[in-house]
Simulated scan of single mutants.
Amino acid sequence: MNPRRKKRLSIILAVLVGLGAISGLVLYALSQNIDLFYKPTEIHYGKQETGIKPTEGQRLRIGGIVVPGSVVRDPNSLKVQFDLVDMRQPLVFHEDDIKVTVTYNGILPDLFREEQGIVANGILKDGFVVEASEVLAKHDENYMPAEIVEQAQSKHQKSY
Rank of each mutant, 00 (worst) to 15 (best):
I118Q: 01
D86T: 02
D97S: 05
I118S: 00
G51H: 06
Q81I: 08
Q157G: 03
T103Y: 04
N142P: 00
T101V: 10
I118V: 15
V15D: 03
V15R: 07
D110I: 14
G63D: 06
I107P: 00
T41G: 03
Q48M: 15
E147C: 01
K79S: 13
V80E: 02
E134I: 09
A21L: 15
S154F: 12
T103G: 04
N105Q: 11
K6D: 08
K47N: 03
T101I: 11
P40S: 04
N142M: 12
L91W: 03
I123M: 06
N121F: 09
D126M: 09
V135K: 00
I43L: 04
I52N: 05
G46Q: 05
I107W: 03
A146I: 10
N121L: 10
A152K: 13
S10I: 12
V102G: 03
A21Y: 09
D74S: 15
G69L: 10
S77I: 09
Q116K: 13
H44N: 04
F37N: 09
Y143R: 07
A152S: 13
Q48C: 06
M1E: 14
L78R: 12
Y143S: 07
F93H: 03
G18C: 10
N2T: 14
E131Y: 07
Q153V: 10
K138Q: 10
V26T: 09
T55G: 05
Q151D: 14
E114W: 01
A132I: 02
V85G: 04
A146C: 00
